[in-house]
Protein backbone atom coordinates (compact mmCIF):
# COMPACT_ATOMS: atom_id res chain seq x y z
CA UNK A 1 0.00 0.00 0.00
CA UNK A 2 2.86 2.33 0.87
CA UNK A 3 4.53 1.22 -2.34
CA UNK A 4 1.41 2.23 -4.24
CA UNK A 5 1.54 5.60 -2.62
CA UNK A 6 5.12 6.45 -3.55
CA UNK A 7 4.88 6.47 -7.32
CA UNK A 8 7.20 8.77 -9.25
CA UNK A 9 4.32 11.15 -9.89
CA UNK A 10 3.51 11.38 -6.21
CA UNK A 11 7.15 11.84 -5.29
CA UNK A 12 7.57 14.67 -7.78
CA UNK A 13 4.34 16.15 -6.50
CA UNK A 14 5.51 16.05 -2.90
CA UNK A 15 8.87 17.58 -3.75
CA UNK A 16 7.25 20.29 -5.87
CA UNK A 17 4.86 21.34 -3.17
CA UNK A 18 7.63 20.93 -0.59
CA UNK A 19 9.73 23.52 -2.38
CA UNK A 20 6.75 25.81 -2.70
CA UNK A 21 5.72 25.40 0.92
CA UNK A 22 9.26 26.26 2.07
CA UNK A 23 8.74 29.84 0.86
CA UNK A 24 7.07 31.37 3.93
CA UNK A 25 9.40 29.49 6.29
CA UNK A 26 12.40 30.86 4.40
CA UNK A 27 11.24 34.46 4.28
CA UNK A 28 10.31 34.51 7.93
CA UNK A 29 13.28 32.55 9.24
CA UNK A 30 15.87 34.47 7.23
CA UNK A 31 14.40 37.71 8.56
CA UNK A 32 14.46 36.28 12.07
CA UNK A 33 18.07 35.20 11.56
CA UNK A 34 19.04 38.80 10.92
CA UNK A 35 17.31 40.17 13.98
CA UNK A 36 18.57 37.41 16.25
CA UNK A 37 22.11 37.73 14.99
CA UNK A 38 21.97 41.37 16.04
CA UNK A 39 20.68 40.34 19.48
CA UNK A 40 16.93 40.81 19.13
CA UNK A 41 14.43 38.00 19.49
CA UNK A 42 11.37 38.83 17.40
CA UNK A 43 8.53 36.60 18.55
CA UNK A 44 6.02 38.71 16.66
CA UNK A 45 6.82 37.10 13.30
CA UNK A 46 3.46 35.37 13.14
CA UNK A 47 1.60 38.63 13.66
CA UNK A 48 3.72 40.41 11.08
CA UNK A 49 3.02 37.58 8.66
CA UNK A 50 -0.73 37.83 9.16
CA UNK A 51 -0.78 41.55 8.54
CA UNK A 52 1.46 41.10 5.50
CA UNK A 53 -0.80 38.35 4.23
CA UNK A 54 -3.88 40.48 4.63
CA UNK A 55 -2.32 43.61 3.14
CA UNK A 56 -1.12 41.74 0.07
CA UNK A 57 -4.41 39.95 -0.35
CA UNK A 58 -6.46 43.11 0.04
CA UNK A 59 -4.45 45.18 -2.43
CA UNK A 60 -4.52 42.32 -4.90
CA UNK A 61 -8.28 41.90 -4.38
CA UNK A 62 -8.98 45.62 -4.87
CA UNK A 63 -6.51 46.50 -7.62
CA UNK A 64 -5.55 43.17 -9.10
CA UNK A 65 -1.98 44.47 -9.18
CA UNK A 66 0.24 41.81 -7.61
CA UNK A 67 3.41 43.89 -7.49
CA UNK A 68 1.57 46.71 -5.81
CA UNK A 69 0.30 44.10 -3.35
CA UNK A 70 3.85 42.98 -2.62
CA UNK A 71 4.97 46.58 -2.20
CA UNK A 72 2.19 47.36 0.27
CA UNK A 73 3.00 44.19 2.21
CA UNK A 74 6.62 45.38 2.40
CA UNK A 75 5.53 48.77 3.71
CA UNK A 76 3.24 47.17 6.29
CA UNK A 77 6.04 44.82 7.38
CA UNK A 78 8.50 47.70 7.62
CA UNK A 79 6.06 49.67 9.77
CA UNK A 80 5.51 46.71 12.09
CA UNK A 81 9.29 46.30 12.26
CA UNK A 82 9.71 49.97 13.05
CA UNK A 83 7.33 49.78 15.98
CA UNK A 84 8.91 46.55 17.16
CA UNK A 85 12.35 48.19 16.95
CA UNK A 86 11.17 51.18 18.94
CA UNK A 87 9.74 48.92 21.63
CA UNK A 88 12.82 46.67 21.88
CA UNK A 89 15.60 49.20 21.30
CA UNK A 90 14.33 52.45 22.78
CA UNK A 91 11.88 51.17 25.38
CA UNK A 92 14.09 48.12 26.07
CA UNK A 93 11.09 45.86 26.50
CA UNK A 94 11.30 42.21 27.44
CA UNK A 95 11.49 40.78 23.96
CA UNK A 96 9.70 37.53 24.72
CA UNK A 97 6.68 39.35 26.08
CA UNK A 98 6.51 42.19 23.56
CA UNK A 99 6.82 39.66 20.75
CA UNK A 100 3.74 37.83 21.97
CA UNK A 101 2.00 41.20 22.09
CA UNK A 102 2.91 41.82 18.48
CA UNK A 103 1.62 38.41 17.51
CA UNK A 104 -1.72 39.01 19.18
CA UNK A 105 -1.93 42.45 17.62
CA UNK A 106 -1.29 41.06 14.15
CA UNK A 107 -3.76 38.25 14.70
CA UNK A 108 -6.51 40.60 15.87
CA UNK A 109 -5.81 43.47 13.49
CA UNK A 110 -5.66 41.31 10.37
CA UNK A 111 -8.93 39.64 11.25
CA UNK A 112 -10.64 42.90 12.13
CA UNK A 113 -9.54 44.51 8.88
CA UNK A 114 -10.67 41.47 6.96
CA UNK A 115 -14.10 41.50 8.59
CA UNK A 116 -14.55 45.24 8.04
CA UNK A 117 -13.10 45.53 4.55
CA UNK A 118 -13.88 42.19 2.95
CA UNK A 119 -16.29 40.29 5.13
CA UNK A 120 -16.63 36.94 3.39
CA UNK A 121 -14.26 34.68 1.53
CA UNK A 122 -13.22 36.46 -1.64
CA UNK A 123 -10.79 35.42 -4.27
CA UNK A 124 -7.93 37.70 -5.28
CA UNK A 125 -5.39 37.73 -8.03
CA UNK A 126 -2.39 35.53 -7.26
CA UNK A 127 1.03 34.77 -8.68
CA UNK A 128 1.08 31.96 -11.21
CA UNK A 129 4.05 29.70 -11.89
CA UNK A 130 6.91 31.11 -13.91
CA UNK A 131 8.49 28.54 -16.20
CA UNK A 132 12.23 29.12 -16.37
CA UNK A 133 13.20 28.61 -20.01
CA UNK A 134 15.06 25.36 -20.77
CA UNK A 135 15.51 24.43 -17.09
CA UNK A 136 11.82 23.84 -16.57
CA UNK A 137 11.95 21.22 -19.35
CA UNK A 138 14.21 18.92 -17.37
CA UNK A 139 12.16 15.87 -16.48
CA UNK A 140 11.25 15.75 -12.79
CA UNK A 141 13.71 18.38 -11.61
CA UNK A 142 12.25 20.98 -13.93
CA UNK A 143 8.82 20.51 -12.48
CA UNK A 144 10.07 20.42 -8.92
CA UNK A 145 12.26 23.52 -8.99
CA UNK A 146 11.78 25.57 -12.13
CA UNK A 147 8.01 25.82 -12.44
CA UNK A 148 7.35 27.77 -9.27
CA UNK A 149 5.92 31.23 -8.64
CA UNK A 150 8.21 34.22 -8.43
CA UNK A 151 8.12 34.50 -4.62
CA UNK A 152 9.54 30.98 -4.36
CA UNK A 153 12.54 32.00 -6.43
CA UNK A 154 13.02 35.15 -4.38
CA UNK A 155 12.87 33.22 -1.10
CA UNK A 156 15.50 30.71 -2.18
CA UNK A 157 17.71 33.45 -3.62
CA UNK A 158 17.60 35.14 -0.22
CA UNK A 159 19.63 32.34 1.35
CA UNK A 160 22.96 32.99 -0.40
CA UNK A 161 22.34 36.73 -0.27
CA UNK A 162 21.80 36.58 3.50
CA UNK A 163 24.88 34.41 3.90
CA UNK A 164 26.92 36.90 1.89
CA UNK A 165 25.67 39.92 3.79
CA UNK A 166 26.28 38.28 7.17
CA UNK A 167 29.73 36.93 6.36
CA UNK A 168 31.32 39.15 3.76
CA UNK A 169 30.19 42.70 4.42
CA UNK A 170 30.97 45.36 6.98
CA UNK A 171 27.28 45.44 7.81
CA UNK A 172 27.41 41.71 8.59
CA UNK A 173 30.35 42.33 10.91
CA UNK A 174 28.37 45.00 12.74
CA UNK A 175 25.32 42.74 13.04
CA UNK A 176 27.47 39.93 14.43
CA UNK A 177 29.16 42.27 16.92
CA UNK A 178 25.85 43.81 18.01
CA UNK A 179 24.58 40.35 18.87
CA UNK A 180 27.73 39.09 20.55
CA UNK A 181 29.20 42.06 22.37
CA UNK A 182 27.28 45.27 21.81
CA UNK A 183 29.43 47.17 24.30
CA UNK A 184 32.51 46.41 22.21
CA UNK A 185 30.84 47.50 19.00
CA UNK A 186 29.54 50.63 20.70
CA UNK A 187 33.04 51.54 21.87
CA UNK A 188 34.15 51.44 18.24
CA UNK A 189 31.48 53.85 17.18
CA UNK A 190 29.03 51.28 15.80
CA UNK A 191 25.47 52.39 16.43
CA UNK A 192 23.83 49.43 18.13
CA UNK A 193 20.44 51.08 17.83
CA UNK A 194 21.01 51.66 14.13
CA UNK A 195 22.06 48.08 13.47
CA UNK A 196 19.14 46.66 15.42
CA UNK A 197 16.61 48.98 13.82
CA UNK A 198 17.87 47.77 10.46
CA UNK A 199 17.65 44.07 11.27
CA UNK A 200 14.27 44.30 12.99
CA UNK A 201 12.75 46.28 10.12
CA UNK A 202 14.28 43.85 7.63
CA UNK A 203 12.78 41.04 9.70
CA UNK A 204 9.39 42.76 9.57
CA UNK A 205 9.57 43.12 5.80
CA UNK A 206 10.55 39.51 5.26
CA UNK A 207 7.84 38.32 7.64
CA UNK A 208 5.26 40.32 5.73
CA UNK A 209 6.52 38.78 2.49
CA UNK A 210 6.19 35.37 4.11
CA UNK A 211 2.57 36.24 4.78
CA UNK A 212 2.06 37.56 1.26
CA UNK A 213 3.45 34.35 -0.18
CA UNK A 214 0.64 32.52 1.59
CA UNK A 215 -2.22 34.78 0.50
CA UNK A 216 -1.28 35.77 -3.04
CA UNK A 217 1.00 32.96 -4.20
CA UNK A 218 0.27 29.66 -2.48
CA UNK A 219 -3.41 30.51 -2.33
CA UNK A 220 -5.58 33.38 -3.44
CA UNK A 221 -7.61 33.98 -0.32
CA UNK A 222 -7.15 35.40 3.16
CA UNK A 223 -8.37 33.53 6.20
CA UNK A 224 -8.17 34.34 9.86
CA UNK A 225 -5.01 32.83 11.33
CA UNK A 226 -4.02 31.39 7.96
CA UNK A 227 -0.33 31.36 8.95
CA UNK A 228 -1.09 28.48 11.34
CA UNK A 229 2.08 28.78 13.38
CA UNK A 230 4.58 29.17 10.56
CA UNK A 231 5.95 32.32 12.20
CA UNK A 232 6.68 30.47 15.42
CA UNK A 233 8.16 27.54 13.59
CA UNK A 234 10.38 30.05 11.76
CA UNK A 235 11.74 31.24 15.10
CA UNK A 236 12.47 27.64 15.99
CA UNK A 237 14.14 27.13 12.61
CA UNK A 238 16.63 29.87 13.38
CA UNK A 239 17.77 27.94 16.44
CA UNK A 240 17.72 24.70 14.49
CA UNK A 241 19.76 26.28 11.72
CA UNK A 242 22.35 27.52 14.16
CA UNK A 243 21.73 31.16 13.19
CA UNK A 244 23.15 30.48 9.73
CA UNK A 245 21.18 30.97 6.51
CA UNK A 246 22.16 27.58 5.04
CA UNK A 247 21.17 25.84 8.26
CA UNK A 248 17.86 27.68 8.15
CA UNK A 249 17.37 26.52 4.57
CA UNK A 250 17.90 22.94 5.66
CA UNK A 251 15.37 23.32 8.43
CA UNK A 252 12.85 25.04 6.20
CA UNK A 253 13.08 22.27 3.62
CA UNK A 254 12.73 19.60 6.26
CA UNK A 255 9.52 21.16 7.53
CA UNK A 256 8.03 21.96 4.19
CA UNK A 257 8.73 18.46 2.90
CA UNK A 258 7.03 16.93 5.92
CA UNK A 259 4.18 19.32 5.38
CA UNK A 260 3.91 18.37 1.71
CA UNK A 261 4.00 14.73 2.68
CA UNK A 262 1.17 15.09 5.15
CA UNK A 263 -0.91 17.02 2.61
CA UNK A 264 -0.49 14.22 0.09
CA UNK A 265 -1.28 11.66 2.73
CA UNK A 266 -4.51 13.51 3.45
CA UNK A 267 -5.37 13.79 -0.21
CA UNK A 268 -4.57 10.19 -1.03
CA UNK A 269 -5.88 8.73 2.21
CA UNK A 270 -3.17 6.17 2.90
CA UNK A 271 -4.90 4.86 5.97
CA UNK A 272 -3.16 7.24 8.37
CA UNK A 273 -5.82 9.34 10.11
CA UNK A 274 -5.63 12.89 8.80
CA UNK A 275 -5.45 14.25 12.36
CA UNK A 276 -2.18 12.43 12.86
CA UNK A 277 -0.90 13.66 9.50
CA UNK A 278 -1.70 17.28 10.31
CA UNK A 279 0.20 16.94 13.57
CA UNK A 280 3.40 15.85 11.87
CA UNK A 281 5.07 19.23 11.31
CA UNK A 282 4.36 20.29 14.86
CA UNK A 283 5.61 17.08 16.39
CA UNK A 284 8.67 17.52 14.24
CA UNK A 285 9.14 21.06 15.61
CA UNK A 286 9.30 19.71 19.12
CA UNK A 287 11.63 16.87 18.22
CA UNK A 288 13.94 19.15 16.26
CA UNK A 289 14.10 21.70 19.02
CA UNK A 290 14.88 19.06 21.60
CA UNK A 291 17.60 17.68 19.36
CA UNK A 292 19.13 21.06 18.58
CA UNK A 293 19.30 22.28 22.17
CA UNK A 294 22.79 23.59 22.92
CA UNK A 295 24.11 22.16 19.67
CA UNK A 296 25.26 25.59 18.60
CA UNK A 297 25.67 28.56 20.89
CA UNK A 298 23.50 31.50 19.91
CA UNK A 299 24.42 35.17 19.96
CA UNK A 300 25.57 36.03 23.48
CA UNK A 301 23.54 39.22 23.68
CA UNK A 302 20.32 37.68 22.32
CA UNK A 303 17.25 39.22 24.03
CA UNK A 304 19.40 41.66 25.99
CA UNK A 305 18.56 45.31 25.40
CA UNK A 306 21.70 47.39 25.08
CA UNK A 307 22.42 50.29 27.36
CA UNK A 308 25.72 51.94 28.17
CA UNK A 309 26.56 51.04 31.72
CA UNK A 310 27.44 53.60 34.30
Amino acid sequence: MIADFFTITVLVGILTSGIRLATPYLFAAIGETFSQRSGVLNLGVEGQMLLGAFAAFYVSYITGNLWLAVLVAIVVGALMGLIMAFVSVNLQAQQGISGIGFYLFGLGASDLLFQKLVGTVKIANSFSPVYIPVLSEIPGLGEIIFQQNVLVYVAFALVPVAWFVLNRTTLGLKIHAAGENPAAADSLGVSIAGVRYFTIILGGILSALAGASLSIAQSNVFQQGMTSGIGFIAVALVYFGGWRPWGVLGGALLFSMVNALQLWIQVKGVGIPSDIAVMMPYVLTILVLVASVSRVRGPSALTKPFEREN
Binding site: R168, T170, N181, V190
Partner: peptide
Protein backbone atom coordinates in the same frame (compact mmCIF):
# COMPACT_ATOMS: atom_id res chain seq x y z
CA UNK B 1 36.95 44.63 30.36
CA UNK B 2 38.17 44.03 26.87
CA UNK B 3 35.89 45.27 24.15
CA UNK B 4 36.40 42.32 21.86
CA UNK B 5 33.89 40.10 20.12
CA UNK B 6 34.96 36.60 21.11
CA UNK B 7 33.44 34.90 18.09
CA UNK B 8 35.18 37.14 15.56
CA UNK B 9 38.81 37.02 14.43
CA UNK B 10 41.49 39.53 15.31
CA UNK B 11 41.21 41.15 11.88
CA UNK B 12 37.41 41.28 12.09
CA UNK B 13 37.57 42.90 15.50
CA UNK B 14 40.00 45.49 14.20
CA UNK B 15 37.90 46.17 11.10
CA UNK B 16 34.65 46.43 13.02
CA UNK B 17 33.01 49.80 12.56
CA UNK B 18 35.59 51.10 10.10
CA UNK B 19 34.86 51.96 6.49
CA UNK B 20 36.24 49.38 4.10
CA UNK B 21 38.32 49.98 0.99
CA UNK B 22 35.87 47.72 -0.82
CA UNK B 23 32.77 49.73 0.06
CA UNK B 24 30.13 47.54 1.66
CA UNK B 25 32.33 44.46 1.45
CA UNK B 26 34.91 43.64 4.09
Amino acid sequence: HFMLVQTLTVAENVALGLPSSRGPLT
